[in-house]
Every structure is written in structure tokens, then in C-alpha cells.
């Protein structure tokens, strides 16, 4: 019985050698349970050791293996070959990020944005361990839980046309994470985060395209977080005019 074959077209780019990216095609033995990452690993191990890409957990948890697969931002470890017509698949680096090599993109900008929104619990005064834990009801947890599932895979940035046009835009994942802490009943850092997310290049650049929520592999809805953050911003702005001393 002849072995079935999948065709993988991969973007190759070595800045020290190539003036621009180009596609290289590989034939990979196909199995029904194979994901795109398996195919890339096969290429690296058996066909071309110079192919460069990021990966780690192979189970959709670490968020490091994102790529544009047939034009859509996806995790390579969560995209089965059998889902693609004729088993011919094009794998490109994620859009909107500078390419370091082949499928590896520069994450610097995203990392800066992530740190900028201070993704940790801020307390006005830290309590001693002996004073016990910061308690939270399940209702309070529900307010932010879905936004805490972000794995920082950056697929939402690759899908966001606004980020593609304006890299200063804070973007979906960073805003979702900021909102996650804004809604956390244990957090007291709203006054610090609000000015960051409510800059013109914070949430206000978003035009509600919604692709960020469509491509998220963990079911996070960054578009909802951005909309809710906008409502908070508008409410605070109106309050500050109506109640200059009492409003935020």
C-alpha cells in the first residue's frame, strides 16, 4: 500500500542570506492524527534541519507555535492536516510581526505591551501572609475568568488589521489581560491601569473588526474586553465632567 503524502509549503527567510521571503515545498508522509507541528517536526528531523520555528508543549497550552496556516492565524499544534483540502498546506509566519527567521517572529513589541498593562495584582497595601488570603466569590471570579485563559500566543494580533496598520495600538491580548485585572475584586490598581488602556492608542483605536475573538484558540473574547473597557472609559469621562470632584 502506498504511503499518503501531505504537501507543506513553508515560508523561508534568512535575513543574512535572503533579500526577501520565499516558499519552499516539502512532501511529508501523512497520518490521520498528524497536526501541522508534527509535519514541521518531520521536515526538521528528516528533510531540512535548517527550518526554524517555535514550539514547546504540543498541546495548545504554551502558545508558542502560532503561524498563519492557509492564511489564518492558528496554533500549528492544534491544526490537523486532515482538515485541509488535498492535504496541501501553506505555513507562513504570523502577520504584522517582523520576521527573525523562517516562521519565527519578533515578539518584543507584544512583550512590551504585556508588561505595560502590569499583569499582576496591585494592592494599595500588601497584607502579611498571616493575615490570610484575599477571598473571592465564584460570582466575582466569573467576571474575569475567561480573560485569564489567554496563553499569549499573539494570534489575535496577527488577525487584527488595526494592529497591522498601527503598531502603537495596545491590541487585543494586552487589553483583555488589563481588563482581567480591572475586573478582579482583589486588585486595587484601576487608577494605574485606566490611563494606560484609555490612551488614544489604547482601546480607542479598535474599530470592532472582531477577528481577535474569532481566532483565539482558548475561547477568550478580547473584543468583549475592549468594548467593556471602552464603556468604563466613556462612563468615567462623563462622570469626571458631571462630578469633577467625585468622578474619576
Amino acid at each position: 500500500m502506498s504511503q499518503e503524502i501531505a504537501t507543506i509549503r513553508v515560508t523561508r527567510y534568512r535575513p543574512e542570506k535572503d533579500s526577501q521571503p520565499f516558499f519552499q515545498e516539502y512532501k511529508v508522509p501523512y497520518r490521520h492524527d498528524m497536526v501541522v507541528l508534527d509535519a514541521l517536526n518531520y521536515i526538521k528531523a528528516e528533510l531540512d534541519g535548517s527550518l526554524t520555528y517555535r514550539w514547546s508543549c504540543r498541546m495548545g497550552v504554551c502558545g508558542s507555535c502560532g503561524a498563519n496556516i492557509d492564511g489564518e492565524p492558528k496554533l500549528t499544534c492544534a491544526s490537523f492536516l486532515h482538515e485541509f483540502k488535498d492535504r496541501t498546506i501553506t505555513v507562513e509566519p504570523m502577520s504584522h510581526f517582523p520576521v527573525i527567521k523562517d516562521l519565527v517572529v519578533d515578539m518584543e513589541d507584544f512583550m512590551e505591551k504585556l508588561v505595560k498593562i502590569k499583569p499582576w495584582i496591585i494592592r494599595k497595601k500588601d497584607s502579611l501572609v498571616e493575615e490570610g488570603e484575599y477571598r473571592q466569590s465564584s460570582k466575582e471570579l466569573d467576571r474575569y475568568q475567561q480573560f485569564s485563559s489567554c496563553i499569549n500566543c499573539m494570534l489575535c494580533y496577527a488577525a487584527c488589521p488595526i494592529y497591522g496598520l498601527n503598531e502603537k495600538f495596545l491590541g487585543p491580548a494586552a487589553t483583555a489581560l488589563a481588563y482581567r485585572y480591572i475586573e478582579d475584586s482583589r486588585d486595587q490598581g484601576k487608577d494605574i491601569r485606566f490611563p494606560i488602556v484609555h490612551e488614544i492608542e489604547g482601546v480607542w483605536e479598535c474599530t470592532l473588526v472582531g477577528e481577535c475573538s474569532v481566532v483565539c484558540p482558548k475561547g477568550v473574547d478580547p473584543m468583549l474586553a475592549i468594548q467593556r473597557t471602552k464603556i468604563l472609559g466613556a462612563t468615567n469621562a462623563i462622570k469626571s465632567i458631571l462630578m469633577p470632584r467625585g468622578g474619576r
Binding site: 485606566f194 490611563p195 484609555h198 490612551e199 488614544i200 489604547g202 480607542w204 471602552k230 472609559g233 466613556a234 462612563t235 468615567n236 469621562a237 462623563i238 469626571s240 465632567i241
Partner: peptide, 10 residues
């Protein structure tokens, strides 16, 4: 903070 933009958005 983009206060005017926030009001216009509202």
C-alpha cells in the same frame, strides 16, 4: 487619557 474621544464614543 483620551477623554474627548471617550465621550464621543459614548
Amino acid at each position: 487619557v483620551a477623554k474627548l474621544h471617550a465621550i464621543l464614543w459614548g
